[in-house]
Design a binder for these strands. Structure first.
Lengths: 270, 270
DNA sequence: TAGTGGTCTAGACCACCGT
DNA sequence: CGGTGGTCTAGACCACTAA
């Protein structure tokens, strides 16, 4: 039985011939070889489906057997693809139930942890978000560069104060692409309980999946000192973040000033 | 064929019976069930061998087939165990050659990256380490707690200045258990080129495998200001690190002050 | 050429979940 | 009970490496 190409551009390992396919992956009969292992191609296809919204956050994706049938590969190959997606927190497996698209709304304190601030004494911290500002502007050069936009394109600028245990803790300045976050207003933000990223994924179909952060120590200027209730010149932790959705598209640039008198940023390195 | 126990405390899935074993793993006939999947038990055994020094950093470990024979499991099961070790950077796989114990000495800029400081402009940075101090003392309470020692036990205190591109960049205070780092002196440290952790693993048989870090912004006091060439009160990034070797044993406590005028701490969060 | 890790398959049994 | 993910096996072919 000769190899055939299914509708997804994957080679079909010819039903029940006992398996084959080497590490360079499937070679398409049209000559455009994809020098990638099958499971990585499948991972890529699944990621595209996630990006396209075929399955939304919180929903089940098809079972491994179904996907294996759809892609004409064995269950083990699909499994390996999903394994990687699960390790990257794009998806959550639940034994006996299925595999679900990860969400910032369900299961608090599971999966992604973008907030890495912890109390020095280890106690839990309650947070409250106050929106100071929500404006639409034309992207300044630095923001445009971080968000992969052209200078002058529409962006949403958002400023907010995060209080920790009822004391000012973080002053954030958040930039979002205007084209994605169309109806975003201070009202919508204020009226929403739960994490910002939960709102973004629910109302604007954009799920934050990964982020790069840069940390520095800086001194408080007059404005931030007043907002945060510290003295001018007090040391603050500056965190710049670029957050990405599926397919490594940058969709948020954030600059935050953190009071670290009784808190710290935690990281595990290996 | 009844299950039998091999010399490693693993149940033997009875040679060529076609495979079985559920997700609760092997059950030992002596009644002391290990409710762990086989591959996790093997991962654990391999880690113990690494800790015991059966294979040293840079050396090859036995092939997957050999290990499968030793543990009386299939190659696939060994593979999954090694997969996890590789993902945790305990070993490095090299196709066609074998699997090697990871080392801080070989292949610079591969595997572990404990140094997460980067130049703001993205350029490479050259570092030079100057040992200021190397003393043996009795552990203060906080250090003892972090290193899991008793107060008053012998520890080595090490202070050093890390210069970045020929300018003072990091002032480190490093605490190590005296029982492990017996012959450590300033001379040995000064006479060694390469990363500190490379010396530790080579001369003292202790390999740093993982670390927890806590970051804060602080103000420079008189002493650190002078050492780092900044003004008193200047903002500095304080990083406290607990580094662990195999089996989660803490073996280093480090407190570092970082000048982040032209550099930043980089982190990827997901 | 022989040995290593890398990929893929097919089929089995298990634990968990809902009905 | 049937369906789901979780584990384990056995055997095949591939790509890379070194002798």
């Amino acid at each position: 039985m000769p190899p055939k190409t299914n509708t997804f551009g994957l080679s079909a390992p010819a039903g029940a011939d006992g398996g084959s396919a080497g590490s360079s992956g499937a070679v398409r009969p049209d000559g455009a070889a994809q020098f990638l292992p099958l499971y990585q191609q499948i991972k890529s296809l699944l990621t595209q489906s996630l990006e396209a919204g075929e399955w939304k956050p919180g929903e089940v994706i098809p079972s491994e057997m179904e996907l294996a049938a759809r892609f004409r590969v064995s269950q083990g190959t699909v499994r390996k693809a999903i394994d990687e997606l699960a390790k990257e927190n794009l998806v959550v497996r639940r034994q006996g139930k299925g595999t679900f698209v990860a969400s910032h709304n369900d299961e608090p304190r599971k999966g992604f942890k973008f907030m890495r601030l912890m109390a020095d004494d280890g106690r839990a911290l309650t947070t409250q978000s106050d929106i100071l500002d929500c404006r639409r502007l034309r992207a300044p050069a630095d923001v445009a560069r971080q968000l992969d936009l052209k200078v002058g394109e529409s962006v949403v600028q958002l400023r907010r104060l995060l209080s920790i245990n009822d004391r000012p803790g973080v002053l954030d300045e958040i930039w979002l692409p205007g084209s994605i976050f169309r109806g975003l207003t201070a009202d919508k933000l204020t009226g929403y309980k739960g994490p910002l990223y939960g709102l973004f994924e629910k109302e604007y179909g954009t799920r934050m999946v990964r982020a790069d952060e840069r940390l520095k120590a800086v001194s408080a200027d007059a404005g931030s000192a007043q907002s945060l209730g510290v003295e001018v010149g007090a040391p603050l932790l500056l965190i710049e973040r670029i957050a990405y959705t599926y397919l490594d598209r940058p969709v948020e640039f954030r600059r935050g000033l953190y009071v670290t008198r009784e808190h710290h940023y935690h990281n595990e390195v290996s």
